[in-house]
């Protein structure tokens, strides 16, 4: 049975698209047929991070409005054979994204035997964000450890509770997961940043992972390479853990403790 997962946050710039790209890639690398859809109509980003921006011909809106079929619009990932990207439109109005159209696209993906459908939500609580979460079975809430991001995540959780199809049909509610990104144990230690326990105390949903703050993410994104491909890096390992936990593995949290650099390290300035 296919699972539809929305990656959302309320606030912008917290790492939704980065997380969508790495999460979808991680699922595909574990052998699951996965599609990732960019719902940010008007501000196309996912294709850049996935490094397929030059191969975009048709987009989500073309499919929703019947100008192209789904097979024409899906772009095969350059690394994984079982990962496909459905890009957003940069030129169209976001109102072209109708509920019926989105439902039809998702149903078609399910018929094409996709196991996981990742919906990369735009920021905010407007139409695009609502469309991304309407049909979700599960939600990954991306939150930075600071108060405004946490507050917006709380708001979007309330909207999922109120507006998702599962909520409206009175069935089993959308399963919620908390993903804390851009986490800096050093700054938490210095009291400059909320700890993941603080975030969880406010949001009260299960934690699926913590992604450490890293400069490598930016350069990977600029090169059109999802961060999970940065082999051996903390960010890559953290995203692999997230995928593992999502698929049911029991994995301890990593990269949450700050170790003061030792005497020699300080002298020789090892990185």
């Amino acid at each position: 049975m296919a699972r539809i997962i929305v990656i959302t946050s309320g606030k912008g710039g917290v790492g939704k698209t980065t997380s969508s790209a790495s999460f979808a890639t991680g699922l595909a690398m574990r052998g699951h047929k996965t599609a990732v859809i960019d719902f940010d109509v008007g501000l196309r980003n996912l294709d850049l991070i996935m490094g397929c921006e030059r191969r975009v011909v048709y987009d989500l809106i073309n499919v929703v409005s019947g100008e192209a079929n789904l097979r024409q619009a899906l772009i095969k990932d350059k690394h994984c054979d079982n990962l496909f990207i459905l890009p957003a439109s940069q030129t169209r109005d976001k109102d072209a994204l109708t509920e019926e159209g989105v439902e039809r696209v998702l149903n078609e993906l399910i018929h094409m035997d996709f196991e996981f459908i990742i919906c990369d939500s735009p920021a905010g609580i407007e139409h695009g964000a609502i469309m991304a979460l309407t049909f979700a079975d599960e939600a990954i809430i991306v939150t930075n450890p600071e108060v405004s991001s946490v507050r917006d995540s709380d708001r979007i959780l309330g909207i999922i509770q109120a507006k998702s199809r599962r909520a409206l049909n009175g069935g089993e509610p959308v399963k919620e997961h908390l993903l804390v990104t851009r986490y800096s144990p050093k700054r938490v230690d210095a009291g400059e940043m909320l700890s993941f326990q603080d975030v969880q105390e406010i949001l009260r949903i299960p934690l699926i992972g913590i992604i450490p703050e890293s400069e490598e993410v930016l350069s990977a994104s600029n090169q059109g390479n999802p961060a999970i491909h940065l082999k051996g890096s903390a960010v890559s390992l953290a995203y692999e853990d997230v995928v593992g936990r999502f698929l049911g593995d029991e994995l301890p949290l990593r990269f949450t403790d700050y170790e003061k650099p030792g005497f020699l390290k300080r002298i020789f300035g090892a990185k």
Partner: peptide, 23 residues
């Protein structure tokens, strides 16, 4: 949990909440 932006009204009665009421 009652989350930011949500509003609950118990008309003519008491309201019991077993989860957090967020800002």
């Amino acid at each position: 949990p009652v989350r930011g932006g949500q509003r609950i009204y118990a008309r003519g009665t008491d309201l019991i909440i077993t989860a957090v009421v967020n800002s």
